[in-house]
Nucleic acid binder design. Sequence first.
DNA 1: TATTGTTATACTCTATAACTATA
DNA 2: TATAGTTATAGAGTATAACAATA
Lengths: 169, 169
Amino acid sequence: MERSGPGVADTASPSLRVVENEAIKLGLLDDFIGYYLRLAYEEAFQDFTQELGADSLKPGSFALLSLIVENPGITQTELSRAAGRDKSSVTTALRLLEDDGLIERRRLPDDRRSYASEVTAKGQAVYGRIAAKAKIHSDRLETIVGADDKNALLRVLKTLIVSLRQRER
Amino acid sequence: MERSGPGVADTASPSLRVVENEAIKLGLLDDFIGYYLRLAYEEAFQDFTQELGADSLKPGSFALLSLIVENPGITQTELSRAAGRDKSSVTTALRLLEDDGLIERRRLPDDRRSYASEVTAKGQAVYGRIAAKAKIHSDRLETIVGADDKNALLRVLKTLIVSLRQRER
DNA sequence: TATTGTTATACTCTATAACTATA
DNA sequence: TATAGTTATAGAGTATAACAATA
């Protein structure tokens, strides 16, 4: 990210005013990362959803489908950890994907408790279309913040996630 | 944020692996801001919640209470815009705050359709405690990412929010 | 005993739409 | 007619807990 000059970080910020709001004071909120993370997530998600249009896929489903495409045969417990969701949530979401014919599951012969998920031909096709739209969406975000800031943003977000998760334990 | 050297942004990233996960490939997801925004929001929120402990206040309520403390007499429509929630959601959340005795509402004499919200003495006290805990939480996040990156993160998030909101219209 | 996945269930947060009252 | 706020309701998206099958 581009550095703001010393001491000018705040004043250099775009005037959020929460929306384009008159003169609402944010107080504590103005410095509260979680507040902006939530708003930014919501806006980004909505932008992606609009881009998807008819290929609508729930946010959780998109993450799962990507993980399955990238890691054929991944088990549900692995998906659960990777997506940061409970295994019961994964079960629910996977059933929807399976009902739509986008993925298939088969039992693992070496551990018959586990199910390996695979993308189907149809799922691959849908994923291809979604991937193209995801790229458009990603490019738009990158245009907004700039390539350097985008990479830095990802890096900082990952640092936050990893550190906070480690702290939980 | 500290710049990574040219071309090393990715490799310089902390190895997220989604958690500390073996070797799950993220594919598209690895470059997908929305994915990390969601995970980061969830982790940050959970950290804040744990810090709050008994003074638990819902995330939406915290934002509303802050806005009321900072903007005494703010109306519900203004709160709605500021918090990025529908007015019906604001109504529901305000009633909880009112039931808990943290805020009061009074009709505006000049426009009897509107209600002005004010924090009560009790609400002020609760807010004081929460503010102290919010500071602890914020300081922790700042320690994790560093002061420069924190300011840059806020700046980039605000840019994203503002730009995407403008685009919607 | 521990783990994988399923199910039933419930919770949290939110929005939509129709409404009342005021303007 | 338009706006502020309320209400009833529904919907995402998720987790908890108890469970069956397997290890």
